[in-house]
């Protein structure tokens, strides 16, 4: 295989892995923001919590990695319901400024509590042996863990697409995104719909956070570190669209990866330049409706 083809394959595959982490973490944010219109800056904090729960479950309770992923999502899902009921429901109709302030405040509280419980030092999440190896494809080795992340990301995309299109819940969510007042008039209980969607969204964030530990590490600061990138993904994709978020994750993941591989001194310049270009031409994002 020629070196440049080799490099191109590396870029594409590695970019795909990174993109799927971005997708898992951001899709919940896109749907909740599209549905409820809340600028939720605490989404990264829920991802961070997911990572910590997974860490506790594996290293302190001794459970295997896969159940830990599920438990992390479920725990954060359960925890998010009271948070949504007590805090978020009060700010749905408020100006976006107050939403930002409340969710930044919530992020700071969650970060401080996590620091209090686990300390500020980084923690790790050991992987099982079967995720540690490499698989050989087309004469080239690919890390199993990356492939695993890609598998989860793609499955998630398909399930979410089908779920939104084929299920009653999906239909209700789409109706409420399009026209909340009309949906309510048609007898949809938007309050519970919001709670449910929010819980599912944060559970996905938690899953993404737990998956990301072995790629970018974990400290309480994770809540803020990746927040801006997540906002970039959802604004490029368009609010409330699963496909948009998926495509934007792919675009940003690939550009970031290619930029870092080919021009490592460029830093984060490329992705932000890409975001600016897309938004200047499509302010509502690639798949968003203006």
């Amino acid at each position: 295989m020629s070196p440049s083809l080799h490099a191109a394959l590396s870029i594409l595959f590695d970019g795909l892995g990174y993109a799927m982490i971005l997708f898992t973490m951001s899709v919940g944010l896109s749907v909740t923001m599209g549905l409820m219109g809340v600028v939720n800056l605490a989404h990264g904090a829920f991802a961070m919590l997911g990572g910590y729960v997974a860490m506790v479950v594996t290293t302190r309770l001794g459970l295997p990695f896969l159940p830990a992923l599920a438990l992390a999502s479920l725990t954060v899902l359960a925890a998010s319901v009271p948070v949504e009921r007590t805090l978020y429901q009060r700010i749905y109709r408020r100006p976006e400024l107050q939403q930002m302030l409340l969710t930044i405040g919530l992020t700071m509280i969650l970060m401080a509590l996590t620091t209090f419980a686990f300390g500020p030092a980084p923690v790790s999440l050991p992987l099982p042996d079967f995720l540690n190896g490499q698989i050989i494809l087309a004469g080239r080795g690919f890390p199993v863990y990356r492939a695993f992340i890609v598998l989860i990301g793609v499955t998630l995309f398909i399930v979410l697409r089908l779920g939104l299109e084929r299920t009653m819940l999906g239909a209700k969510i789409r109706a409420a995104v399009d026209n909340p007042a009309m949906a309510e008039a048609a007898g949809i209980d938007t309050r519970w719909l919001f709670t449910l969607t929010f819980a599912l969204g944060t559970a996905l964030a938690a899953l993404g956070g737990a998956l990301a530990v072995n790629v970018v590490g974990l400290t309480p600061r994770f809540a803020l570190e990746y927040l801006v990138v997540l906002l970039a993904v959802i604004s490029m994709g368009g609010l409330g669209t699963v496909t948009g978020t998926f495509v934007a994750s792919l675009v940003i993941g690939t550009i970031e990866n290619a930029g870092r591989y080919l021009f490592p001194a460029g830093g984060a310049f490329f992705i932000y330049a890409a975001v600016v270009l897309v938004l200047l031409y499509r302010p509502a994002g690639l798949y968003g409706r203006s």
């Binding site: 590396s10 990174y18 790629v215 970018v216 970031e256 990866n257 290619a258 001194a265």
Partner: peptide, 14 residues
């Protein structure tokens, strides 16, 4: 160069 100090990068491309 392997990314700035603001966040831990995905090291793979580097």
């Amino acid at each position: 160069p392997m990314g700035g100090p603001a966040q831990v990068p995905d090291y793979t491309p580097f």
